[in-house]
Design a protein around this nucleic acid. Structure first.
Length: 490
RNA sequence: GGCGCCAUCGUCUAGCCAGGCCUAGGACACCAGGUUUUCAUCCUGGCGACUGGGGUUCAAAUCCCCAUGGCGUCACCA
């Protein structure tokens, strides 16, 4: 059954994909999927000063990483191409001319100086700053003559009297007095059309049925609704998503943390966790289930269930969720995802990890529940790659070891006991049995042996099973580290 | 300042539209126990909220009004 539902995500390639933009894209996409509609991508590259191809590519890349697929867009094309706003300029001009000829827009010859002056005066009188409509009464013929004569001008939309109402699927009935909407500029003096104008032109031409975007656009909506009516085009349904807030309770900005999706990708957050967490900012599956898949999202998502209030981005919960995904994932996959971080940390090259695949996987299996992002793995396993001589003892690890007065004697005895038992390799299970006997024979409590041993082998206060660590290190290096510890812990 | 939006634990939220099932549920964080050689995981328990005031009603977190607070926005950016 074909659906008439068509939604879009229309980023401006003037920066990296913002985390809030990513959520907007996700919600649009999920809505389309849920209701059998189409999701399209349009690049709003009409600001040549700030738009770059690099950002555009990065945004597409980010969306793909999230698993978002678009039915129509700049790279895949579609029936309403082109999907770069800058390439639709001829159509924009045509539509602007239409409004002008119908008397719904007019030429304005006010200079920037006058507008600035006007603004200053309004501010001084504590009035709202808005264009005063001076050029609106100009006769069309006179205006046309002045344009013909080369006088600089902009094209302004002639806002009618009355009240503009529209329905918002998240917030209900919205109402704005048109006196609050100024005669805004549709086309700049250089001939380029402005955002509020082109966004409507394109949405009409692309048959967009639902517009879901950030709440900061709410106040633009009356301007746009008026435009739809001027074009006698059906007004789409709107849905203004709550803002994502920083810890300062203000619109998420770089001041309070990373705002680019890419930053979280580079920090090693699993993409499923990113998707899951982003959805939880302003939407809930049912109020009790926090972890859910995109399939569940698509099966249950409805714009009506989106929250109205802004959501503070809680990094602690995000990290928890990230760790949750890593714990639930397979060792193989986590190992693969962590590999680039292990390499970047200078611990081992990709080929070295390939060569020692089973060994590397064992490390990951032992560390999986101790990391929250892929980037945390190197810190957990660095001691295995350190030189025996330069192994760093963490303060707590050394303190724990030194708590035991007989540590050096214990380690010396253990070293001699151990040497023959691992000459042919380490058998953890057999060793574990042996260690129990070693302890009882000497009347040692477990920590008395294992805390100094752990410090000697890894220099870490925590971590996986000490005998596992011994196995990973191998006989030679384990013995070497024990010998060194005899000195270092005395 | 004008206009607009919003308002449940510290945070994300369920409940609100269709008022009683709410002595307000879940999650993160925090605290206390348990498991573990340690850390982490895991398990158990605890702490903790309906912004205030009016109204409607037999009954309000839920509906209405006001106040307060927070945020957004006021460009020839998008």
């Amino acid at each position: 059954m074909a659906s008439n539902i068509r939604v879009r995500f229309a980023p401006s390639p003037t920066g990296k994909l913002h985390i809030g933009g990513a959520r907007t894209a996700l919600f649009n996409w999920a809505y389309a999927r849920r209701h059998g509609g189409a999701f399209l991508l349009r690049i709003e590259d009409t600001d040549p000063e700030r738009s770059t191809k690099e950002y555009e590519l990065a945004i597409l890349d980010g969306l793909r990483w999230l698993g978002i697929h678009w039915d129509e867009g700049p790279d895949v094309g579609g029936p309403h191409a082109p999907y770069h706003q800058s390439q639709r300029i001829a159509r924009h001009r045509e539509m602007a001319a239409r409004l002008l000829s119908e008397g719904r827009a007019y030429h304005c010859f006010c200079s920037r100086e006058r507008l600035e002056e006007l603004n200053k005066q309004q501010e001084a009188r504590k009035e709202k700053s808005a264009y005063d409509g001076r050029c609106r009464p100009l006769a069309p013929a006179e205006a046309a003559a002045r344009v013909e004569a080369g006088e600089p001008n902009t094209l302004r939309f002639a806002v009618p009297q009355g009240t503009t109402r529209f329905h918002d699927l998240i917030r209900g009935e919205m109402s704005f007095d048109n006196r609050e909407v100024e005669d805004w500029v549709m086309v700049r003096s250089d001939g380029s059309p402005t955002y509020n104008f082109v966004v409507v032109c394109d949405d009409i031409d692309m048959r967009i049925s639902h517009v879901f975007r950030g709440e900061e656009h709410l106040v633009n909506t009356p301007k746009q609704v008026l435009l739809y009516r001027s074009f006698s085009a059906p007004t789409p349904e709107f849905g203004h998503l709550p803002l994502m807030l920083g810890t300062d309770r203000k619109k998420l900005s770089k001041r309070t943390g990373d705002t680019a999706l890419q930053d979280y990708r580079e920090k090693g957050f699993p993409r499923e966790a990113v998707v899951n967490f982003l959805c939880l900012q302003g939407w809930a599956l049912n109020g009790t289930q926090e972890i859910f898949s995109v399939e569940e999202l698509v099966a249950h998502f409805d714009i009506k269930d989106v929250t109205k209030g802004g959501a503070i981005f809680d990094m602690e919960k995000f990290l928890w969720m990230s760790g949750e995904y890593i714990r639930r994932d397979s060792v193989e996959h986590v190992a693969e995802m962590c590999a680039p971080f292990v390499e970047a940390a200078g611990l081992a090259s990709e080929s070295e990890l390939q060569t020692r695949r089973a060994w590397y996987h064992a490390l990951v299996a032992g560390s999986k529940e101790r990391i929250r992002t892929y980037s945390e793995l190197p810190g957990q396993i660095a001691y295995l790659f350190a030189s025996d001589e330069k192994l760093v003892y963490e303060e707590t690890a050394e303190r724990n070891a030194r708590k035991h007065a007989g540590r050096v004697e214990t380690l010396r005895a253990f070293l001699e006991w151990l040497r023959p038992r691992i000459a042919d390799g380490v058998d953890v299970a057999a060793l574990r049995e042996g260690v129990k006997l070693f302890q009882t024979e000497r009347g040692l409590k477990t920590p008395e042996l294992l805390q100094p041993l752990r410090c000697a082998l890894s220099g870490m206060a925590g971590g996986p099973d000490t005998l596992e660590v011994l196995a990973w290190l191998g006989p030679q290096r384990s013995l070497r580290r024990l010998e060194l510890a005899l000195e270092r812990l005395s």
